[in-house]
């Protein structure tokens, strides 16, 4: 970090900026309500609407239908597959707005004021990353509570402590995406281009992954894209922690990939921030 913060605690500026974002969030009841509602709507409407269980089970003996489901989705209940996928989708949607908050700060002159103080550029970026991550984690909590209430079928060998793993994975994917979207907006003074860019990226990110459908059933080219998408690794890890049987090898691969990915992207965003935040 550039410049020592004279006399104060080492992370003082970073914590203050994070606190500012958090206060703006919880002091606004409507915003808080929307944060709660958004993942619930996703899960209830999408999760219950796409009843793939009924599709697979149509006209076949129930025994065979269960086998088909289990082979394709790793669980007999499509809602459980879908609900766990919603964790990554919610993280994606919440973090995507971090980029806009930095444009807003620039427009209002707040960013210029902060840049003229000794606070490090990394703190400016990380305060927003951490805010988005905390906000997403709160939503993940709501999803988990609701999913269990709506009848999530846990996998064999499930232990409540596995849920901590879910939060770890959510943390990594949030760091990745909020850094990515911040990076795109670093020098922007206008909404239009970053907004279009986010819209462009959103659908491919969501559908070229295993959120709704397992990779194994995808055509080869799509599977190739999906298998580099960090969302796929997020879902894989989340499902291992909840609805599937835990496979140590696969889980380690997921965590390593996500860890590396988030580390790379966040370091890159800090590097670019130091270089380009001052225009």
């Amino acid at each position: 970090m550039e410049g020592q913060e004279v006399g104060g605690r080492p992370l003082q500026g970073f914590l203050a900026l994070t606190k500012r974002e958090l206060k703006k969030w919880y002091k606004e009841p409507l915003l808080l309500l929307i944060t709660v509602l958004q993942p619930l709507i996703w899960m209830v409407f999408l999760g219950k609407a796409m009843n793939l269980g009924a599709v697979f089970g149509g006209g076949v003996p129930p025994e065979l239908a269960r086998g088909l489901m289990l082979r394709s989705f790793g669980t007999t209940d499509y809602f459980s597959f879908m609900a766990t996928g919603m964790i990554a989708v919610t993280c994606l949607f919440t973090t995507m707005f971090t980029g806009f908050s930095i444009i807003w700060d620039r427009r209002l002159g707040f960013l210029n004021k902060v840049l003229s103080t000794p606070v490090s550029r990394a703190s400016v970026i990380f305060s927003k990353v951490v805010y988005a991550t905390l906000r997403s984690s709160f939503q993940v909590l709501i999803i988990l509570v609701a999913a269990f209430a709506l009848g999530l079928k846990v996998g064999p060998g499930f232990h409540p402590l596995h849920l901590l793993g879910v939060f770890l994975v959510a943390f990594m994917v949030c760091v990745t995406f909020s850094s990515l979207f911040l990076m795109l907006a670093l020098r922007s003074t206008r909404w239009e281009a970053p907004m279009a860019m986010v819209n462009l990226m959103l659908m491919p990110l969501m559908f070229a992954s295993n959120v709704f459908f397992p990779l194994e059933l995808m055509p080869g080219w799509l599977r190739a894209i999906a298998s580099v998408n960090p969302l796929s690794y997020t879902n894989d890890a989340v499902r291992q922690f909840t609805i599937w049987r835990l496979d140590r090898g696969a889980l380690l691969r997921d965590l390593a990939y996500l860890g590396l990915f988030s580390l790379t992207i966040s370091s890159l965003s800090v590097y670019l921030a130091k270089k380009y935040l001052s225009r």
């Binding site: 020592q4 913060e5 004279v6 006399g7 104060g8 605690r9 003082q12 500026g13 914590l15 203050a16 900026l17 606190k19 500012r20 206060k23 703006k24 002091k27 606004e28 209002l108 002159g109 707040f110 210029n112 004021k113 902060v114 103080t117 000794p118 606070v119």
Partner: peptide
């Protein structure tokens, strides 16, 4: 540039923290 959602005191304290 002060944050509308925060109080005057909170805003000044934010600046104090930015200067460490």
């Amino acid at each position: 540039t002060a944050d509308e959602d925060l109080t005057g005191y909170e805003n000044v304290m934010l600046c104090a923290d930015l200067y460490g």
